[in-house]
């Protein structure tokens, strides 16, 4: 047991948990915006996959991770807009249309990969950035401040999201539209415009999440996300529609995963238990929510399309 607590392993476990949390965090922050305004998008994983392929392919062709990230953003915006058209303007059943987008993304990203790339070829990853000063702190510096740049971007978006949702007029509109669209509408807030923006933000962040995953791994493969988009949606509920809570959920899920991996590597978890141990992140996430027993209510208008005068 003592073996685990060597400094190097402890640092690696924490750092690994943070890396695993990043795509989840990005995608669920985006989904938080949509859900706060009353729109559930189950298509996150599909958008992530297309963002991942787009990002990967761009880096493969241009060798620029930033152009790759930009492609992920572009794909996210487009698919976010498409999702908005479907769920806001066309008022489609939100669960079902999201599943359609998921299946489309899953198939299309694989098809494009097979036709344009073929066999997996590695690409360059995001550069590492040691935060000056902070990265020199013993232990903590190595755990938290010696990551690739996308990690800081993801965690930096948490306070930004909090600020937008809680302190800006746009954020007030989001919350109003999510709680009582009729009232918001009567006060002159455009429900449609607000939801278009939030769903597009959600798509954008999902696209970034996918691109971040692919570029950080430096590779693409069929179903690269392995349903992380769905976990991200679950984490929005875990975080009770609050960016900080969502971050807590993503970190919890990431840390339990990295701990399990580390325990398996060191043989603390016997090999015959490897699949049982792999259940841990999911079970602990549920248990954590049960124990914390929070009583947050979901946005009242979640999944309900808005029709003026309906």
């Amino acid at each position: 047991m003592n073996e685990f607590f060597t400094q190097a392993i402890l640092i690696a476990t924490v750092a690994s948990g943070i890396r695993l949390a990043v795509p989840l965090l990005l995608a669920s922050l985006g989904e938080t915006f949509g859900q706060r305004s009353g729109v559930l998008n189950l298509g996150v994983d599909g958008i992530m996959l297309l963002g991942a392929f787009g990002g990967y392919y761009t880096v493969l062709k241009t060798d620029s991770v930033w152009l790759g990230l930009l492609t992920g953003i572009g794909i996210g915006i487009i698919l976010g807009l498409v999702s908005a058209v479907i769920s806001v303007t066309l008022k489609a059943e939100q669960g079902i249309s999201g599943i359609g987008i998921y299946l489309f993304g899953l198939g299309m990203s694989d098809l494009l990969f097979q036709k344009l790339v073929g066999t997996p070829r590695p690409v360059s990853s995001f550069p590492k950035l040691d935060i000056p000063g902070l990265s020199d702190i013993p232990i903590l510096g190595e755990m938290l401040f010696q990551h690739s740049m996308i990690v800081y971007v993801a965690f930096g978006l948490v306070p930004v999201s909090m600020y937008i949702i809680n302190r800006t007029t746009f954020g007030m509109n989001i919350r109003a539209v999510g709680e009582n669209p009729e009232a918001a509408d009567s006060l002159g807030v455009s429900v449609v415009r607000t939801r278009y923006l939030t769903v597009t933000i959600g798509g954008t962040l999902a696209g970034i999440a996918g691109a971040a995953l692919a570029i950080d791994l430096g590779i693409f493969q069929q179903n690269l996300t392995n349903a992380q988009g769905f976990i991200a949606i679950a984490l929005v509920y875990f975080g009770a529609w609050r960016p900080a809570g969502v971050m807590g959920g993503a970190l919890l899920y990431g840390f339990v995963n990295s701990l399990v991996l580390q325990f398996k590597t060191l043989g603390i978890i016997p090999r015959s238990w490897s699949d049982i141990a792999a259940m841990a992140p999911a079970i602990i996430t549920i248990l954590a929510l049960v124990l914390v027993a929070r009583r947050f209510r979901q946005p009242a208008a979640l999944t309900k399309p808005f029709t003026r005068g309906a």
Partner: peptide, 17 residues
């Protein structure tokens, strides 16, 4: 993979319509 993508498209278009 094309079939999967097509499956998704049919779902999206029918729901959207």
């Amino acid at each position: 993979a094309l079939i999967m993508a097509l499956n998704g498209l049919v779902v999206v278009f029918v729901v959207a319509s």
